[in-house]
């Protein structure tokens, strides 16, 4: 087995910790509620997860290069609106409309990435602008009305007979697997980690950091569009108000998954576990009869707890790798 050169592999330990948290939550809710461990719950989760998952995967890449993308919720709404209008008003079939939707996401992401990377403007600001632009675009294309599509798109979210999983869920899992593979195995993955660690050092190594940063934002845009497609399938309608606050849920999932907000360290699989933890918590709390305000307060506490844990993991990690302290010389 060839060694990974990403650095000391902390991943399994992190993943195991997150899996443990997830299992504890499932056991907790199962013991507190008779209904939790059931097909209904599974179906609810299966409907909720795909959109947040693919958006959070894109956000993981963006946070890895020490950027942020606040526009994903609006871009998702715009892309779903484009697809909805094309199908409902222009009579396009599913696949071309879907591709047009993904292209819209690509354009939004590339634009944000290009402006922020080429002219060195903080991505926070550029994507804040894109948040407004895309939301305005969503209202514009839909005429501020929800577009009802009905069963034409329903099969995206419906479980495939005999498999029990919807194309959306399968798609989301494939995205997670592919993104993790890209992160760990490909040159692009290494560049993301390197750029997030020390962008100037990467630039001075002769690597075109601008190009790779644009690619990252473009991917985040496409994945936001895919999230829009999944949500379209689930709701069977395109709502220009969809996805408000989605960027914050995505960031929360990424952070719970342990990806560093300052860049250079992260994992797509852990982001997926973060998504699952949020979804299980939301569903479980709802079944226990916890009100919406209560759910939000508890989710907030979990996010803060996750970041606290992340802060204390560094000294913990140093403790574990103490045998590598330099033996002599100036460091």
């Amino acid at each position: 087995m060839s060694p990974s050169i990403v650095g000391r592999i902390r991943l399994p330990w992190n993943s195991l910790g997150l899996v443990a948290v997830l299992l504890v939550l499932i056991l907790l809710f199962s013991s507190l509620s008779d209904y939790f461990f059931s097909a209904v719950t599974f179906r609810t989760l299966a409907n909720q997860i795909p959109t947040l998952t693919v958006v959070a995967v894109g956000m993981t890449f963006v946070l890895l290069i020490a950027g942020i993308d606040l526009s994903v919720g609006s871009v998702m709404a715009l892309c779903a609106a484009v697809m909805g209008v094309l199908m409902a008003d222009s009579g396009w079939p599913l696949v071309p409309a879907l591709l047009a939707s993904l292209l819209t996401g690509l354009a939004c992401g590339s634009f944000s990435g290009l402006v922020s990377a080429r002219w060195a403007i903080p991505s926070f600001v550029v994507t804040l602008g894109m948040l407004e632009i895309a939301r305005g675009g969503a209202y514009l294309v839909t005429g501020s009305e929800t577009k009802y599509l009905g069963p034409a798109v329903g099969r995206i979210g419906e479980p495939i007979a005999g498999l029990g999983l919807s194309p959306a869920l399968i798609g989301a899992i494939v995205v997670v697997a592919l993104a993790q593979f890209i992160l760990v195995k490909t040159v692009f993955g290494r560049y993301m980690i390197a750029i997030g660690t020390n962008e100037e050092a990467v630039r001075l190594s002769g690597i075109n950091t601008v190009r790779w940063k644009v690619v990252v934002f473009a991917i985040a845009g496409v994945l936001a569009a895919l999230g829009g497609v999944f949500q379209l399938g689930y709701l069977q309608s395109a709502d220009p108000n969809a996805g408000i606050g989605l960027e914050l849920s995505a960031i929360a999932a990424v952070v719970i998954g342990g990806t560093s907000l300052s860049g250079g360290r992260g994992s797509v699989v852990n982001t997926f576990l973060g998504v699952l933890i949020i979804a299980v918590m939301q569903t479980g709390l709802a079944q226990l009869g916890v009100s919406e305000p209560g759910k939000r307060i508890i989710t907030g506490l979990v996010i803060i707890g996750a970041v606290l844990f992340d802060q204390y993991r560094e000294p913990l990690g140093k403790l574990l790798t103490r045998r590598y302290e330099p033996k002599r010389g100036i460091s």
């Binding site: 050169i5 650095g7 290494r190 980690i193 690597i207 250079g264």
Partner: peptide
Amino acid sequence: LLLDKSIALNIGLGQLGTLHNRLGIV
């Protein structure tokens, strides 16, 4: 340097662009 990254990544950083297959796998 990428201080908290491995010796191998730091030495190989400049070569990543060439040492991969057609799929971009390092």
